[in-house]
Amino acid sequence: MQTVIKTINLRKTFYTGEVPVHALKGVDLEIREGEFIVVLGPSGSGKSTLLNIIGGMDSPTEGEFFYRGTPLQEMSRRELTMYRRRAVGFIFQFYNLMPNLTAYENVALASELTDNPLDPAAVLAEVGLADRKDHFPAQLSGGEQQRVAIARAVAKNTDILLCDEPTGALDYETGIQVLAYLHKVNREMSKTLVLITHNAAIGGMADRVIYIKNGRIDRIQENPNPVTAEEVSW
């Protein structure tokens, strides 16, 4: 399988006031096409920083970072924007839908950004929202909003989907539902999926679980037989 993302000795230092905070202290990681990766770690472990760098929202202080062999660590703002646009789909904990666009329009907005997008209506139907497509976010439940957000990320038809605590704001059942859709996207559309969470139970669904602690990869656990969303419980 081809490598999609590769990082070598990735470091990130924040300066808040006088004291430097080392969020990442040398991360070497390889993510392969079609993988379902769960990044687990307590808050403050550096997992969000890692995701932000992989997602092109932040740049590393040191180290190298490749997307399909292209080095990204020295890209300009504009190039990073283009990378986010063409290569990455992002799913947030708090959905971040455009409040004054309908579900359909939110998805269409994203599809306007890439050259070979998927049909917004079809993608919405995939996440089970065909009949809710003309509703505004405020008229949808949290789970429905997150599914719109998934559809929005998927519609761009990018290689990688990055999810930052996608179930963090949802109740248990809705969370499972959302995970099921993410799983489906990963398996049926063979999108590479990176999901960060501090919910260890979700790790069971992943091909590999990466444990982050203190800005370093603590260990990587291969999962030869990942479970489905319905089998996860916490």
Binding site: G55, M57, R78, T81, M82, Y83, R84, R85, R86, V88, F90, F92, N96, M98, P99, L109, A110, L113, R152, K156
Partner: peptide, 14 residues
């Protein structure tokens, strides 16, 4: 702000 930051993450230019 939030909408705009989201749009930036989606890959929209300034």
């Amino acid at each position: 702000q939030r909408e705009m930051a989201t749009l930036m993450v989606l890959g929209m230019t300034e």
